[in-house]
């Protein structure tokens, strides 16, 4: 439902950029518009994206496509069991010529960081990402280095049941704004993929359609999107409900509420609205909240997933009436 909006020029910019990036990514990832949308929402909301699925469904492809579409610095860290924290953050090296320690930045120093198979690294290395993701800075040898905006970590991981994986700690999961699952492509998309991917790597043909400065501008526009008091109350009601329901042992954190609202703002802007409606929150709740929640033993034994619990909460929590001043 796109409607004319006062000051719509800004939102038109957002729509233009988003549609360019979307078109670009969809040249590589076929038949997954939901996943691509979620990735774009996270990009505009300045969050980090966790892509979880079995190997070979295009996780890396998606993250790379997204990174390539933006004309900015991109780095890729392949997480392995022997990867060290310093490989992520960077290390101070003694320069024989200058006889001084100088800082060699690690893979984290880029606008878009693709962390591949993040749960293959040891918890120690994973936690090295923590500070960088949340505070957008790196501290090495008492020196703090700021990361340039936009900064986005796109991490992929295999489901924890897979061999040779370490489960991501709750604290780190909480720092990702959203988690998406790729899922297997439908048959037609898989056939199309055979066509396009066997001749050459389609990633090679991708060109950047936007740049870091434009991205900074549109994230600024997204931040201006209005969130009514009623919608804020609804967001808080949703996350509080996850804390009190007996089906979850760990509910959503206040940071989750913040992420939910920011994601909703980005989604609203993409939809061409300068205000958030409760439905935006409902739509994004699974993507933004599910990976942070831990089901209770009882719920797990009854076969209720966190998604199912979330659905019940969404159906149950009433939408607050708007304020009538």
């Amino acid at each position: 439902m796109v409607a004319p909006i006062p000051g719509g020029a800004d939102l038109e910019t957002v729509a233009r950029v988003v549609s360019r990036v979307r078109g670009n990514v969809e040249r590589v990832i076929e038949g997954k518009p939901d996943v691509v949308s979620a990735a774009l929402v996270v990009l505009l909301a300045e969050g980090h994206l966790l892509i979880e699925d079995v190997p070979g469904v295009g996780k890396t492809m998606l993250s790379k496509a997204l990174a390539r579409s933006i004309d900015c610095s991109v780095s890729r860290i392949q997480f392995t069991p022997d990867l060290l924290p310093s490989d992520v953050t960077g290390v101070s090296v003694f320069n024989q010529n200058t006889r001084e320690f100088e800082f060699r930045p690690g893979g984290i120093f880029a606008n878009v960081v693709v962390g591949d198979e993040i749960n293959r690294a040891s918890p120690k290395t994973q936690s090295a990402l923590l500070e960088a993701m949340e505070e957008r800075q790196v501290t090495v040898d008492n020196a703090t280095y700021h990361l340039e905006a936009p900064f986005m970590v796109i991490a992929t991981q295999n489901p924890v049941e897979m061999e040779g994986t370490y489960a991501l700690p709750e604290a780190q999961r909480d720092r990702f704004m959203a988690r998406v699952s790729m899922g297997y492509p439908v048959a037609s998309a898989e056939i199309a993929m055979l066509d396009s991917h066997t001749r050459s790597n389609p990633l090679d043909d991708l060109e950047a359609v936007t740049d870091a400065s434009e991205l900074r501008k549109i994230t600024g526009i997204v931040a201006q999107v209005h969130v009514a008091h009623a919608v804020q109350r609804y967001a808080v009601a949703l996350t509080s409900a996850t804390r009190t329901t007996e089906d979850l042992t760990l509910g959503a954190s206040p940071r989750a509420t913040l992420h939910l609202v920011r994601a909703a703002k980005a989604y609203a802007a993409i939809e061409g609205r300068d205000y958030v409606v409760p439905d935006d929150l409902q739509l994004l709740a699974r993507t933004v909240l599910a990976h942070r929640l831990l089901p209770s033993v009882e719920a797990a034994m009854n076969g209720r997933t966190t998604e199912a619990v979330l659905d019940r909460i969404l159906a149950g929590v009433p939408v607050p009436e708007p304020d009538r001043a």
Binding site: A241, R243, T244, I313, V317, P318, E321, D323
Partner: peptide
């Protein structure tokens, strides 16, 4: 009304039942 809904919400929050019991 909005005010009624808010009151109910506050009441629910106080009893620790959050908004769930207003379903």
């Amino acid at each position: 009304s909005g005010a009624q809904a808010r009151r109910a919400e506050v009441r629910a929050t106080r009893t620790g039942a959050a908004t769930v019991d207003e379903v």
